[in-house]
Design a protein around this nucleic acid. Structure first.
Length: 466
RNA sequence: GUCCCUAUCGUCUAGAGGCCUAGGACAACACCCUUUCACGGUGUGAACCGGGGUUCGAAUCCCCGUGGGGACGCCA
């Protein structure tokens, strides 16, 4: 009476980067295992040698790492398990649950075309399926056969889908699908079954597009005498425009979100909330997510990705983030742009100045840029803001700043002194000053900006434009 | 064509027959805060796909439409 411990898996095929839909599937499978104190397996389904690449494997590993979805077992590679698949195929052939089929691709294509012309569902017609009392055709010489699974012909396959509820499919809808190609290599549905069995997977949490594979896999499992795991099918994620996610939507790779300045915790929180809910909770930590996660509160219909909401979450997590960490992110991005002199001011200090005002790390770095590289305000800006009155005020301020104490509090007093001397209002001085100092009319509180910049930079920039 | 899934504000969703004059969040709009721009705060507008049942009572259960999605490979 050993209750079988929960074991889930994420099984991507390495034919591209880890996209946002795959990331959510991984997140849910991971969370389910964590929630139940079980294991999370990473399996790379690389049997499509034409399209699988080592770069894609690396991209998936990188994406998982960035998100912090650590696996307990694996990564397993299907290409390294060929011996095992061939062994099981041999056993099935011997047991009569699978058989050789000599129908050529051309014949199959013709069969399908004829069925489609008659408006029928295209399916294999069972020519080479052995039956008691049936005489099989003579195998043509020189043709390498494929191996087909002998699928039951009557009854239904049913399972209680953990997210969609009970699903039943008539066996009459299924045909004898190929489990090994003419060259002997096993196919997808077969490898999945052997792997899920061998790896002791108890809960298969995967995309909606696999619903149709499930009855075939259950039949196979049963033919093998293997336990049938529980299945839960997650509906797909649509793009921002409501259409299917594709490369044309831009930032579909998880790592693209890193490049675009998103924090992993924001992406994770967003993804968790996309298709799953816990009452009215919108913002939660991964620890809370793991504690709350269940399959009962997953939405069964497709969800549209909403960048606006992700942006909001990202802004929220940036406000929460540690200044030193944000400083690192600023430095990393500035260096990428060729700004190497980031020793002073301390990027963490600039982060503190701007973290409440930006939606992503790239905006943060863009804001910080002018603190390290003197800006070149456009002629328009200069003409608009650096009026004669403003210049006179800035000249007055410059004289005072040359001697002033550079603490924010003292700077505020200095600014006020200039206002008193010139009779101008704060914005009339502060805005031109921002243009001179940072190249744009908006910024955080001007006294804090002055303090962060430091006397040398401030005076230098004033001198350039006065 | 056949089979399967699906349907609440623009979007993500709450909702397990009465708690629903349908709640929250993003976005939008308005106001407040303010040394600019943001942030933040407060508030407003905004939805149960259609038609039949079942029931004293349906957003919730059933059926039929319709819309959307998926599958039907010697791809995964």
């Amino acid at each position: 009476m050993n209750p079988s411990p929960v074991k889930t898996r994420f099984a991507p095929s390495p034919t591209g980067y880890l996209h946002i839909g795959g990331a959510r599937t991984a997140l849910f499978a991971w969370a389910y295992a964590r929630r139940h104190g079980g294991k999370f397996v990473l399996r790379i389904e690389d049997t499509d040698i034409e399209r699988s690449t080592p770069e894609a494997v690396q991209a998936i590993l990188d994406g998982m790492q960035w998100l912090g979805l650590a696996h307990d077992e694996g990564p397993f590679y299907q290409m390294q398990r060929m011996y095992r698949y061939k062994e099981v195929i041999g056993q099935m052939l011997a047991a009569g649950t699978a058989y050789h089929c000599y129908m050529s691709k051309e014949q199959l294509d013709a069969l399908r075309a004829a069925q489609e012309a008659k408006k029928e569902k295209p399916r294999y017609d069972g020519t080479w399926r052995p039956e008691p009392g049936k005489t099989l055709p003579t195998p043509p010489s020189g043709v390498q056969p494929v191996v087909r699974f002998r699928n039951p012909t009557d009854g239904v396959v049913a399972w209680d889908d953990q997210v969609k509820g009970r699903i039943e499919i008539a066996n009459a809808e299924l045909d004898d699908f190929i489990i090994a190609r003419a060259d002997g290599t096993p196919t997808y549905n077969f490898c999945v079954v052997v792997d899920d069995w061998d790896m002791g997977i108890t809960h298969v949490i995967r995309g909606d597009d696999h619903v149709n594979n499930t009855p075939r896999q259950i039949n196979l499992l049963q033919a093998l005498g293997a336990p049938v795991p529980r299945y839960g099918h997650l509906s797909m994620i649509l793009g921002d425009d409501g259409t299917k996610l594709s490369k044309r939507h831009g930032a579909v790779s998880v790592m693209q979100y890193d490049a675009d300045g998103y924090l992993p915790e924001a992406v994770l929180n967003y993804l968790a909330r996309l298709g799953w809910s816990h009452g009215d909770d919108e913002i939660f930590t991964m620890a809370q997510f793991v504690e709350w996660f269940d399959l009962d509160h997953i939405t069964s219909s497709a969800a549209q990705f909403n960048t606006e909401k992700l942006n909001w979450l990202n802004a929220h997590y940036i406000k929460l983030a540690d200044d030193a960490r944000l400083g690192q992110e600023i430095r990393r991005r500035l260096v990428r742009e060729g700004v190497t002199e980031t020793a002073a001011p301390d990027p963490a200090e600039i982060a503190a100045l701007y973290k409440d005002r930006v939606q992503n790390l790239n905006e943060l770095a863009d804001s910080a840029h002018a603190f390290y590289v003197a800006p070149h305000p456009s002629d328009d800006l200069v003409a608009q803001h650096l009026t004669d009155a403003a210049k006179a005020a800035l000249a007055d301020l410059r004289r005072r700043l040359a001697e002033a104490d550079f603490s924010p509090a003292a700077l505020a007093q200095t600014l006020k002194a200039t206002l008193a001397a010139t009779g101008l209002k704060m914005p009339q001085v502060a805005i031109p000053l921002r243009v001179v100092l940072l190249g744009q009319p908006q910024s955080p509180a001007i006294d804090r900006v002055l303090a962060a910049l430091g006397r040398a930079r401030v005076l230098d920039r004033l001198d350039r434009l006065l």
